[in-house]
Design a binder for these strands. Structure first.
Lengths: 191, 191, 191, 191
DNA sequence: GATGAATGAGAATTCATTCAT
DNA sequence: TATGAATGAATTCTCATTCAT
């Protein structure tokens, strides 16, 4: 480890390292020690900036979520370039399970952490709520958005766990049932 | 701890204790020591019967799955008493999130443990595949079964994490889209 | 923590906080960090004003002693209003173990900290010597004063540790043996 | 550290080492690490036998007490060889502060620990009660025994802390006031 | 077979202190 | 002068696993 007495971005570098640790070793592998090694920083430095394991965990998972939500938002932002929302989402699943599989696994690991540890539950919940919020303007109502997110989550988890290849035509079939796209514009939110 | 020399059900009791440990402390809390304490058995006894941590983990999660699958299977077995399959599944979600919430949380913890640890991935996959297999005879085809399981999983996880109350009419609405029950009998599997 | 730049009483406030920390968490709980939190002051500020742990410890214990000695002195100052010195001291024990129990425990913690840590030994010794000095004018000679302080200390410690209730008539009985009050005035110090 | 796979007296040796650590470094210096080093045993071995710091502390202090109480008991057992009980106790103080000063300091450190930490309070209380019990048959009543123990404790603490030399004639003077030895045998307990 | 004991690794955490600003 | 940041050393504790009996 290079000694570095004055290092203004220390906290930032630690956090980035924490994310990399989660991505490479899973949520359980996130320890102060692992992060210190990954960030090339003394152990005490990690505990200085994140004084408890929970603090480190929550910060890392928040950042992971942010990245995922940004991707999702960016993707939805160009939904109008696709033939249909269904098609656009099918493609999202495809990418999530293909080139982005690693980060997809990490995000679903956040859900897991949320089930086991009360401290991260808000983080996991925020991720879900935010996905719904991003999807909302493109569909008929909030219930639809929630259902679509549920189906996407359930499908993705199933495919991640069973290792079966993604069959876009299946995804299209079921998403289509939830999103009967009539050609009319989605109803804007009333609130 | 009571000494108990000739104890033919030792292995069985350890396993039952392991399940209780997972249910009460989560997957991360499953350690030889915790199980030994819960089973009122010496530490060495747990390592004798399950010589690695993974062995213990997998055995416990398999058993958890079995319990869950049995519930699911039993529930489906009386599906014909319900007004419709949709209605029957809505009710299942209701129960899962209500009286059975604790064991529901445990089962989803198995899923996500599967994401983090390769050794449990087959266990988690088996659970999903088995749910599909149980549902298959009641729906049009295997794809439908998979989609229904996905939606149920996604919905349940969403409700567990956000803490929102279950709204049966919403669940009914979306399940109904996947299961357009026409009154005709489901197509039997062709295989 | 409220930023507070020009704060002339900073040192004073840190010291007062240190005393509160000793009273609430014991001598072992006295750390720079705990004091910083209690005083609502940055950590660096505590190390600036008290550059070593020993300095902080000694300063806090000195102040604790001062408070105790002031109480003891004030009490003795009105000894002539009591029927006898014995009676007055019995009452002091009563109060020490009753309403003032918390601060009594702290002061005896100072004594014993003196046994463990050479740096505080002078502080503890000063407390004892000062009690003797305060008592001296009211009794026959310095030896008597020392014996009375010894008995009071021994009794108090015994009652604190065993949790037995204070029996004033017992205290009166034994103090009376050391202080055979004949009605004659105490011999003034010869020195 | 010599590896020693099978070591039947391991626990015993750890405990003995713990006592030596308390005697040499004080109660605060008693850590698993220090004990491991002193006992020439791996760290894990100390945590195996005494799984918490409190367990180690209590065990060590109990043993320290036992040694002290044995000395005190042995000393009292030959009280009839002395000119008087007072004289015998004066001599005990003399020895405690002289050749046995180190172990005397340790025992009073147990008192200290009792004030600060609830877990050792019973140990400290037991020491006091046991001293009273040992002394009881030699004096008029239990109150006398308690008073004598109080005075001895108070005196000893005072001398340990102030560093003043023991003045046997003073001790004799005050002990004599509590123990007006009339030559008659002490009243045996009525219980 | 069964198990108490042993062990080494690694976890979180706390801390006094130093240093750069 | 004051202080946030940094750091290295300790501490407790938990654990999976191995081993001798």
């Amino acid at each position: 480890m290079t000694p570095r007495r004055h290092d203004p971005d220390r906290r930032e570098r630690i956090l980035a390292a924490a994310v990399r640790v989660v991505e490479s070793r899973g949520v359980d592998g996130l320890t102060h020690r692992a992060v210190a090694a990954e960030a090339d920083v003394p152990l005490g430095s990690t505990t200085y900036h994140f004084d408890s394991g929970d603090a480190l965990l929550v910060a890392a998972l928040e950042r992971l979520n942010d990245g995922w939500l940004r991707s999702f938002g960016d993707w939805l932002a160009v939904a109008d370039e696709a033939p249909s929302l269904t098609e656009h989402l099918v493609r999202f699943v495809d990418i999530s399970l293909g080139p982005h599989r690693a980060s997809t696994e990490s995000v679903y690991a956040v859900y897991f952490a949320g089930l086991n540890r009360p401290v991260v539950r808000p983080t996991a919940a925020r991720c879900l709520d935010e996905m719904v919020r991003l999807l909302r303007p493109l569909v008929a109502d909030e219930g639809t958005a929630r259902a679509v997110v549920s189906l996407l989550d359930g499908l993705t988890i199933q495919l991640l766990l069973t290792g079966r290849p993604h069959r876009p035509e299946e995804t299209r079939r079921w998403l289509g049932r939830l999103l009967p796209e009539t050609g009319s514009r989605p109803t804007p939110p009333t609130g």
